[in-house]
Nucleic acid binder design. Sequence first.
DNA 1: GAGCACTGC
Length: 718
Amino acid sequence: MAGFLEPPIKKQKSEDNNTAFNSNQSTSQNSTNGKVNGHTNNTPVNRNPPFCKFPSSPKFNNTFDPKPRHSDHLKALIKQRRALPIFPVRAKLLSELEKQDFVILIGETGSGKTTQIPQFLHEQRWDRKGAICITQPRRVAAITISKRVAEEMDTKLGGLVGYSVRFEEAVSQSTKLKFVTDGMLMREAIVDPLLSKYSWIILDEAHERTISTDVLFGIVKDAHKNRKANGKDPLKVIIMSATMDVDHFSNYFHKCPVLYVEGRQHPIDMFYAKEKQDDYVLTSMSTVFQIHKEAPPQHDILVFLTGQEEIDSVVHTIRQIAKDSSLSEYPRLRVHPLYAALPAHQQLEVFRATAEGERKVIVSTNIAETSITIPGIRYVVDSGRAKIRSYHPNSGFDMLKVRKISQAQAWQRAGRAGREAAGHCYRGFTREEFDALELNPVPEILRSNLASVILQLLAIGIKNVLTFDFIDKPSPEHVQEAIEQLTLLGAVTVQSETLELTETGKKMAQFPLEPRYAKVILSGPEYGCTDEVLSIIAALSSESVFVNPSGKREAAAIAKRKFISVEGDHITLLKIIRAFKAVKSNKMWCHENFLNFRNLTYALEVRKQLVQVCQRCGVNISSCQQNFDAVRRCLVAGLFTSVSELQLDGRYLTLAAKQEATIHPSSVLFGGKPAYVLFTELVHTGQTYMHVNTPVDAQWLYDVAPEYFRKRHIKINP
DNA sequence: GAGCACTGC
């Protein structure tokens, strides 16, 4: 224990980073906040925010008239609005936006850009001819921001201001300020590639580089060009972001101007490890106790680690150490884990205010980087690690690996300490190691299966996906692999080097699903089991429906037996969904059967949406009742590229890439040796595992894709 | 007999 208490890190204040988050500096004219300065070593960042330097243009003034009827609450809101850093630069901003079709706006947390700019545009009545659409990477953000803006504008949500996210929307004919998830706007583009409803598109949080934002970059550029060419009203585009590689973005958007607005962030002291640490978990824990012994009570600590298991064990250890009598003179420690898989009531614990004489320690995954904001955090301990998923085109498996985070992520994490007051960030890595980190995270689009993206681009009418104007081009292998998959699924045909969407492909694009799942559903009518595969695919779209509490493994296993089918995991899922529907989504029933109510409810919601898409596409929904062979054959029709074959030595090799894989112990097929296994995904952890599996007949494989399997020489049993 | 960061349609 003494090892933990002995700090391996010597306090080492880094001069430039100490000032980096200094709010005094960030109010001066030629500096924004920490992130900008944090990048100065490596990035050509314009450190002269033009907003602060130029006088207001006479055409746009910096005031607006609150109507006298306003309540005290509204007056307070107006006061808050006027105090935002974006407010003084309103005029300059508007004059720039009037002139330009594309503008990049860099502003850190607290600048007010997201809530104010849509209102500025509305106040100019620039939304007369078309609405303003503002995208967010996350649903909650889209909803909460729209609520805030509606409140500020003193209108009812769903009227002038609205939102639209999957499964939920509040919009009407009169909605002019519409907050949506980026995925939602992608969907809209399939129906309306010119985005003709909108006069302004604001892509917010662009630095996060989600697949959808990246694709939208290209789509808005295309829509802008085509609207111009067709003599339609121009599309105006604002890219909003925290600090990023500005030149890269500006060059992409026709060398458009980049505007800066300062953020509002309290100063943060940065501490780096003096020397390399070889055990980041141990380093993080000892840092917590070092802080604990020095910091005043109620100054809470947020620790960033990588995953559930690691976090649970660290939480346990910290609690054990905290009991030691040598620590009795210090504040009482309240330690909480935080990760997405945690039940909601346990997640809520982290929001509970710290009592007097107490200190809260939150040990979290990167969920606390952006998705969840915890009040009271004054200290951040950053292990510098996160789990990141990447996809390998040739082998087709997903890797979920612990990796070093990027500099941008490190700044984001540090920033969590400075939201309410001056904060501190302790980094379990040296300054040299920090400098050696990648500046920005690898964009999602460069580490994902592109089949969905390519299908959607084709559906939008972008003919040449090979030359699509991605801001960062995926590798040709990635693109080629996606095209091959789509060809095998019968979604596209390749004719003299151009891709053509088939009728099936057009329908597939309508589904909010991976193309191979959409293909399963579209194959439903042929096997008379659309009803069944809808349930299975909906279940696959959700997180695991099983609950497996560590103390009650035995009981959970017994409960699962009721639903287990020798016909595999997919049929087992089907039985569970059927049973859940039969008990009318009973929560108690879920509890008794060790099933996850939230995820099952989500699955039914997805199912409902899929049914609607089926109706739109004219897909007949019929049931095969107990004919599970039909269901399995139907699964093969979409998932036939995910099949492995039993070898003479008892191993399995995937047919697609001859990759060795093992049946995961959570599968009902575990311990058995069917000749052919259809799996849902390959996950590469210690070994390569097949997750969610169904045994299939070789003959079925031939029936669905004769050529594909002839090449692979599968053996048909007599 | 293994173990899974986080979003989104």
